[in-house]
Simulated assay, not measured.
Amino acid sequence: MTEPQEIEPRMDHLVYAAPDVDALVAEFTERTGVAPVLGGVHVGRGTRNHLVGLGGAAYLELIGPDDPTARPLPDVFGIDRLTAPRLAAWVVRPADLDATVRQARERGYDPGDIAPLSRRTPDGDLLQWRLTPNRGDRFGGLAPALIDWKDARHPTEGGLPQVRLLSLAGRHPDPPAVRNALAALGVALDVTPGPAALEAVLDTPRGPVTIS
Rank of each mutant, 00 (worst) to 15 (best):
I211C: 14
G207R: 05
R130H: 11
A181T: 02
V52K: 10
R120P: 00
T100W: 13
S212E: 02
V163K: 12
L73H: 13
L24T: 04
T210N: 06
G159Y: 06
R164M: 11
Y16F: 15
V163Y: 13
M11K: 03
L82R: 13
Y59P: 05
A183F: 00
R71I: 04
A95K: 10
T2M: 06
L168Y: 03
E61I: 05
R120W: 00
I79Q: 13
D113W: 00
G78S: 10
V163H: 11
P144D: 04
L82I: 10
F139W: 02
P74W: 05
L62V: 12
P4M: 14
G56F: 05
A200R: 09
Y109D: 01
P205E: 03
L82W: 07
A200V: 00
R48S: 13
L166C: 08
V76N: 14
E8L: 01
W90I: 03
D174A: 09
L189S: 04
G64N: 08
Q162I: 10
E6V: 15
Y16T: 02
V41R: 15
T121Y: 05
A89L: 03
V178F: 01
D137G: 10
A169D: 06
D174P: 00
G158W: 15
G140N: 07
L117W: 14
G78F: 03
G64Y: 06
A115L: 06
G33H: 12
R81S: 15
A58R: 15
A181L: 01
A95C: 04
V37W: 04
G78N: 07
V201Q: 06
V163N: 13
I114R: 15
D12G: 10
L38M: 09
G186W: 02
L14D: 06
D98R: 15
I79E: 10
A23H: 03
P155H: 07
D190W: 01
A177V: 00
V21I: 13
K150I: 08
P94N: 09
T2W: 07
R10Q: 15
E8N: 08
I114T: 11
G40A: 12
L160Y: 09
D174Y: 03
L198S: 11
L160C: 07
V92L: 11
P161W: 02
N134L: 00
H154P: 04
R130C: 03
T69A: 14
A99P: 05
P205Y: 07
A104I: 02
G33T: 12
L54N: 05
D110I: 00
A188M: 02
L97Q: 09
R179L: 01
L126K: 15
T192A: 15
I147P: 11
G124L: 00
I147Q: 12
A84M: 05
D66H: 13
P9R: 08
F139V: 01
D12I: 05
L60G: 12
V191I: 15
Q103P: 00
